[in-house]
Amino acid sequence: MLKSLHIDPDKCTGCVQCELACSYENEGVFNVAKSRIRVFRFHDEGRVVPYTCTQCAEAWCMQACPVAAISKNPDTGAMEVSDPVCVGCKVCTIACPFGTINYNQSTGKVIKCDLCGGDPACAKACPTQAITFINADETGMGRMRQWASKTDAGQSASAAQA
């Protein structure tokens, strides 16, 4: 079963614990500037939104790479960058419609979310369950359930019978 990161911005407080966990996992230090997941604050609307790679099947980054440095991990479904192969040409950063693959000046390679090999640190670090790691086929179930609870169809039917 493939799992996906599921992000619910309504639950996000903007604490950036996900960014801290991501940078520690991948860089060995706390450095939110190098995090693969980023939290954006829209101050005037009072909203914060965590954003990262969704591991899309189209994988424009992978298609655009001229040296085949990006490949799909069959176990996790994540598109992963091979550092020894990456030449730092940044074509992938242009190809990705979402901007979730970025160049890292200190290594000369690109970085993106690789789901931490199947156990993403960001989801574990999130204190409010705004980021969860769940069955890839059911990322909409929470929202469906929320709307289902609001429907009055069941009540109307029983009211009509009475």
Partner: peptide, 10 residues
């Protein structure tokens, strides 16, 4: 509610 950097209280 909103959190400062690294704050899990918010």
């Amino acid at each position: 509610n909103a959190a400062c950097f690294a704050c899990t209280i918010a």
